[in-house]
Nucleic acid binder design. Sequence first.
DNA 1: AGAATATATGAATAGTTGCTCAGATATCAA
DNA 2: TTGATATCTGAGCAACTATTCATATATTCT
Lengths: 132, 132
Amino acid sequence: MPTTSLIPPSASLETDSCDTAHAGDPAVLADVAGRLLDDRTVQAVADVFKLLGDPTRVRLVDALSHGERCVCDLAALVKLSESAVSHQLRLLRSARLVRVRRTGRQAFYALDDHHVLGLVHDTRRHVEEGER
Amino acid sequence: MPTTSLIPPSASLETDSCDTAHAGDPAVLADVAGRLLDDRTVQAVADVFKLLGDPTRVRLVDALSHGERCVCDLAALVKLSESAVSHQLRLLRSARLVRVRRTGRQAFYALDDHHVLGLVHDTRRHVEEGER
DNA sequence: AGAATATATGAATAGTTGCTCAGATATCAA
DNA sequence: TTGATATCTGAGCAACTATTCATATATTCT
């Protein structure tokens, strides 16, 4: 069920939207407005998606889905410099999507979030479903 | 189960990674490399996330989750110009995340993808779980 | 101690993105 | 037709991003 509102989508007659001051049926619109996600949540959600919205970071998450890896192995897997990988891992780490375990001079990164893999898998299924 | 590989994550001894030419245990690394998502999939997945990685577009998807809406109502809901909203809707539309239904001079947009709401909901739950 | 290795970090830069503004298109109303 | 409304589109610009390069830090080996 895509609609949670009790009031039907586009009001009674769909011709009474968008006159002066750009107001649709005020009652319906106010109802929807009251149900919108708050700014903080919207920003937080967008931030997570933005982090996953880069091929390099998707590759890193994908690589880490097979177990923890050190920076230089990750660099080899995603075919980028260790510096570039380190920069990206820092972003993922500051959002707690990955965590580090340091041993000697090596840093082993691992996924630190049971949701992230799910998101990537869902999206993967979605794009594979869409190409036809 | 986060790990799909049959070969354990960091090889037998975790000290045999990253010598010359940045190769960890070649066997393990090659195994992981062979399981990585291909470039096309990675790019497609990142593209979807990138699309959702913007507060305005998250707001639009959220607003549309309560039913179809015309451009100017959406503009009022997300508090942006109709031009800005139209630009963003075009991006969402070209990725088939939303669809249009034109009636007279109005354009009613609706979610065109049963996965997208799920992604937003999952991520919302994730960020709300993370703040504590 | 000194050299080599693994990672991290800051600055610089090329590329991208999201908005505004002005104008185009299309529909409806008088 | 003329004017108003709803949406779309292109150009321009300020802000952001991902990489590279040079360098710093920290650890191990000889």
